[in-house]
Computed example of a mutant assay.
Amino acid sequence: MLGYGQFCPLAQSTQLLCERWTLLVVRELIAGSTRFSELQRGLPLISPTMLSRRLKTLERAGVIQTSVAQGHSVYELSEAGRELRPIVELLGAWGHRWARSDLSEGDLDAGLLMWDMRRSINPDVFRNRQVVVEFEYPDAPKGARDWWLVAREGDIDLCLHDPGYEVDLVVRSSLRAMTRVWICEQTLNEAIRSGEIRVLGNPELARRLQDWLTASPLSKLGTRPAPEVVWKSTDQA
Rank of each mutant, 00 (worst) to 15 (best):
residue 94 W to C: 04
residue 222 G to D: 01
residue 225 P to R: 06
residue 61 A to T: 04
residue 201 G to T: 01
residue 94 W to G: 06
residue 18 C to K: 09
residue 73 S to C: 11
residue 57 T to I: 08
residue 109 D to T: 08
residue 33 S to Y: 07
residue 107 D to W: 03
residue 83 E to N: 09
residue 139 D to I: 05
residue 143 G to E: 08
residue 41 R to S: 07
residue 156 I to M: 06
residue 194 S to Q: 13
residue 93 A to L: 00
residue 97 R to H: 05
residue 51 L to C: 10
residue 147 W to E: 06
residue 228 E to F: 09
residue 116 D to P: 00
residue 182 W to P: 01
residue 24 L to S: 15
residue 114 M to N: 03
residue 57 T to A: 14
residue 100 R to S: 07
residue 18 C to L: 15
residue 83 E to M: 10
residue 115 W to S: 05
residue 185 E to I: 04
residue 54 R to V: 14
residue 187 T to N: 02
residue 152 R to D: 11
residue 11 A to W: 03
residue 97 R to Y: 02
residue 95 G to R: 12
residue 30 I to M: 08
residue 221 L to K: 13
residue 83 E to P: 00
residue 2 L to R: 11
residue 134 E to L: 04
residue 139 D to Q: 08
residue 104 S to V: 11
residue 19 E to L: 15
residue 28 E to Y: 05
residue 107 D to Q: 14
residue 212 W to D: 09
residue 183 I to D: 12
residue 44 P to A: 00
residue 205 L to V: 01
residue 95 G to E: 11
residue 5 G to N: 10
residue 61 A to W: 00
residue 142 K to D: 14
residue 33 S to E: 15
residue 154 G to V: 14
residue 146 D to Y: 09
residue 120 S to V: 06
residue 127 R to A: 12
residue 50 M to E: 13
residue 97 R to E: 02
residue 168 D to G: 04
residue 20 R to Y: 10
residue 216 S to R: 03
residue 162 D to R: 11
residue 2 L to P: 10
residue 226 A to Q: 13
residue 22 T to L: 07
residue 127 R to G: 05
residue 129 R to E: 13
residue 39 L to K: 05
residue 94 W to Y: 12
residue 103 L to D: 04
residue 144 A to R: 13
residue 171 V to Q: 07
residue 109 D to S: 13
residue 223 T to Q: 11
residue 4 Y to I: 00
residue 136 E to L: 11
residue 230 V to N: 01
residue 85 R to P: 01
residue 138 P to Q: 04
residue 85 R to A: 14
residue 179 T to D: 09
residue 14 T to V: 12
residue 205 L to D: 07
residue 106 G to L: 10
residue 75 Y to D: 01
residue 120 S to N: 10
residue 110 A to E: 08
residue 146 D to T: 12
residue 169 L to Q: 02
residue 16 L to K: 03
residue 75 Y to L: 06
residue 203 P to W: 05
residue 47 S to K: 15
residue 134 E to V: 05
residue 113 L to M: 12
residue 108 L to C: 09
residue 109 D to A: 10
residue 16 L to H: 03
residue 181 V to Q: 04
residue 165 Y to F: 13
residue 31 A to N: 13
residue 148 W to E: 07
residue 154 G to L: 12
residue 73 S to Q: 15
residue 72 H to R: 10
residue 213 L to I: 15
residue 13 S to F: 09
residue 126 F to N: 02
residue 158 L to C: 05
residue 24 L to K: 14
